[in-house]
Design a protein around this nucleic acid. Sequence first.
DNA 1: GATGAATGAGGGTTCATTCAT
DNA 2: TATGAATGAACCCTCATTCAT
Lengths: 217, 217, 217, 217
Amino acid sequence: MIVVSTKRVSARGRAAAPESGNGGSERRAELLAIAADLFATSGFQGTTVREIADTAGILSGSLYHHFDSKDSMVDEILREFLEYQQKAYDDVLRDSPDARTAIAELVRCSFRAIHRYRAAVAIFQNESGYLTRFERFDYLRKASADIERTWKRVLEDGRRAGVFRSDLNIKLAYRFIRDTVWTAVHWYNPRGRMTAGVIAEQYIRFLCDGIMAPGQE
Amino acid sequence: MIVVSTKRVSARGRAAAPESGNGGSERRAELLAIAADLFATSGFQGTTVREIADTAGILSGSLYHHFDSKDSMVDEILREFLEYQQKAYDDVLRDSPDARTAIAELVRCSFRAIHRYRAAVAIFQNESGYLTRFERFDYLRKASADIERTWKRVLEDGRRAGVFRSDLNIKLAYRFIRDTVWTAVHWYNPRGRMTAGVIAEQYIRFLCDGIMAPGQE
Amino acid sequence: MIVVSTKRVSARGRAAAPESGNGGSERRAELLAIAADLFATSGFQGTTVREIADTAGILSGSLYHHFDSKDSMVDEILREFLEYQQKAYDDVLRDSPDARTAIAELVRCSFRAIHRYRAAVAIFQNESGYLTRFERFDYLRKASADIERTWKRVLEDGRRAGVFRSDLNIKLAYRFIRDTVWTAVHWYNPRGRMTAGVIAEQYIRFLCDGIMAPGQE
Amino acid sequence: MIVVSTKRVSARGRAAAPESGNGGSERRAELLAIAADLFATSGFQGTTVREIADTAGILSGSLYHHFDSKDSMVDEILREFLEYQQKAYDDVLRDSPDARTAIAELVRCSFRAIHRYRAAVAIFQNESGYLTRFERFDYLRKASADIERTWKRVLEDGRRAGVFRSDLNIKLAYRFIRDTVWTAVHWYNPRGRMTAGVIAEQYIRFLCDGIMAPGQE
DNA sequence: GATGAATGAGGGTTCATTCAT
DNA sequence: TATGAATGAACCCTCATTCAT
């Protein structure tokens, strides 16, 4: 019998290449989608490998033909999202003519991610704290830092250029925006009447102009 | 000092009163504080009863002299906070002369809660989804609805009175505010330079006026 | 071979079907027999899941691959026996030409059960009181009532027909017989010289004629 | 401070003399009665020390001022009953003019015990098997043997004297009688219409003459 | 006599994971 | 690829018992 993959990996070690070279198989993708939804809904720790398997209609042991471990599953889910997200943010930075546009584009782009990678975004929000306890997920910290840098750069540029208030507390503004935008993933309904795009526009308005009526102050 | 709720019976295991235990003792309060911190930091499921006991310097079994169960602990932690919070919100509604003031007071009052009940607020944010799976924690849903009603009433009043923009989407505005305010609990540092009060004022400013410089639009 | 009952849901913990497990496997039957013996010998509460597993040569956790819980094990053990027993009693009622024959057949049939389902009979005797505290085991009460009805019907028929003494206290006679017959399970030795059949005949004689020598009174 | 009693006793050791010399205090007797009832109803293992204490209105730790251990409680309960019972049986043996009378008296005397020491009798029936695993309760085996010897002697005498059937299987007859008589403790109701005395007479009739109508056979 | 806090061993159960088939 | 049986560690909780106050 020819041994193809090794997948030894003492728990929480690095990701041993799953089955035959890459993550291509469709079954894999299905399983990953199922896992992502469950992780997003019930939490990573709150989801058992058996639940994933049950939902997929197989036995829990069979999942290990596709993935090394539960950790590998989140890992893959998160990496895919983060790769997309970093590229998207970079594009915004490159293409925006001014800070006003850039901020708006970052918001739009974030809501697009919420739409496309809903489960992954939720997991990133909820489980980063837990996962970064393990070396394997150190990259989550780096990803957060990258995201933070992107937003702060735009905010600083805008303040310097007189687009944003001169007394703007960058750190606080960043947190304000980040929290309200990303937390939206928890209630966003992809099949609801409010599309991600519509919500994004409203949020941009909130962020830029606040909620007061003109003339009120 | 707030009077705790204590063992209201109901699902997830009969709540047999632990021997002699009651709501009074100081030890109880200590243990509860330890548990709250751990739940906030590591999640409810991510915290083991042994960890709580270890941190308290006793054996895990000894915890059950004071509490019926792990569930009872979160229950008590959450009830204390919610009781405080509901009263605080009611006071704001009663005492605010206009919507502008009311919104500002709600924000201040929320940040005071974040300061005083940091762990409980974090738990309420993070674990409501999980806990409301169990009958015993149905009241969390009700509490969320109460909070929502409070904010929305103020927003509607303000819009009607012409204080807030006439095209304000109440539902969306509520979520925008709620998410950014309450999520702050995750990074708020009670010993940091930015006090809860200072953050509150800045957030009020963001919410009311946005981040744009005057004249920009 | 009797078809087992298997996980009918109901109280005392949700009965989540163990992975893949079903009513068919031989391993299951082995494990059930081991558990039954231990429950009969040491009591249900007096038997630990670890003891069952040790006796079976596996780890305690592995039992849960086959059964939902300790409760499920007794449940299955008892249901199999009761199903058999009810059918057997019904057959006697249907086939007996007169009360004398019927009583004798009921005794024989009970001793056959003691022989075939020794452990289950002992558990039914010893643990019904404890188990019926839980909703899940309500059916034990019903089973007892069915058995009682069967015997009493025969006793009443016989008294009416003049086969049994006209002053026979049915209720007391039933208890007298039931207690002496079923309690025999505690000392009956399936490999002893006295077979179940022999004991049954002697017991029939005791019941019908007493122990006095003819002419004595 | 004057140390009066030692009560060290490594678990399941011999009974260290309880408090100041004897078992006289009334509180003791109350507590013992409570424990006996619970042991009889819920089993020895099925009764927790805390339940006993709760029923008595004290904390579980406080029980240990009266008794060395849970074991000591059953021990005392059983010893009192057995002492009474042995004396009673001896009296019967001494005073009965013939086997017929002796058997009847043994039955009456057993039902008197069931009435007076109901809980103890039930415990002796149900828990002997478990308790005799421990050295401390070896005397239970001896007590059973004594009881057996008493009955068998009467049965043998009666058979030899032609009072009982000449083909009587002594061993089986003993078990038949013992089981039916002692098991009655499980349903006997001291406040019911059927007094222990009445039941005894009926049982004597069953034992001696059986249930058949005269002339039937 | 009683309390209240704690111990320490053990109970039933869960769950990620392994592996022969 | 999947199954089914098993592992082993950990989890929440129980309970008899101890002991300072």
